[in-house]
């Protein structure tokens, strides 16, 4: 008997099994338009804003997208954010955007006690309205470094702080 035969069989069986299992599962696909990595940094009153949410509103329709895509990102300890359109740090579709910024404070509690609302914006909504935003961003093909967002002398929500 050919001594290689059992090995061949085992390999064959394993291959069949793998092929059978490969057919199942897997994440559902979705339609996506090309995105380009983009990152930036947020500083408020000299402190890197940790946990701030940066969101980009498209100024014109994005070709291929049925609904407007609003890439967003959350800043880390250093105030650095990476934009996400579909998942992870995939960036944003190319085009012109209005950038908005809010900085929720999950530690905020109502002064009179009671049920805290959804984390309120430390910046009190000053930069969260795309209609009034002063920040403009253009995303191009390839890596994008968004100009650092430096906010000075911004009044902070009462009962909130720049840390945490």
């Amino acid at each position: 008997m050919d001594p290689k035969l059992p090995t061949t069989f085992a390999a064959c069986a394993a291959a069949c099994l793998a092929a059978a299992l490969a057919g199942c599962g897997g994440p559902a696909a979705y339609d996506a338009i090309p995105t380009h990595p983009a990152s930036g940094q947020v500083t408020v009153n000299g402190v890197p804003a940790k946990g701030a949410i940066v969101r980009l509103y498209p100024k014109s329709p994005q070709p291929g997208a049925k609904y407007p895509l609003m890439p967003s990102g959350k800043t880390d300890e250093a105030g650095v954010f990476h934009l996400t359109t579909y998942e992870d740090a995939d960036g944003a579709p190319a085009g012109a955007y209005t950038l908005t910024l809010e900085w929720p404070d999950p530690a905020w509690r109502p002064p009179g006690g009671g049920m805290p609302p959804p984390p309120p914006d430390r910046l009190q909504g000053r930069f969260s309205d795309p209609e009034q935003s002063q920040f403009e961003v253009r995303i191009v093909e390839g890596e994008n470094d968004i100009q650092p967002i430096v906010l000075e002398d911004v009044p902070i929500l009462e009962g909130s702080s720049l840390s945490e």
């Binding site: 979705y30 949410i53 969101r55 609904y67 895509l69 609003m70 967003s72 990102g73 959350k74 996400t84 359109t85 579909y86 998942e87 992870d88």
Partner: peptide
């Protein structure tokens, strides 16, 4: 949400 479930106001 985004498809990875980390940011709200996404395509999913």
């Amino acid at each position: 949400w985004t498809y990875d479930g980390t940011q709200y106001y996404g395509p999913c």
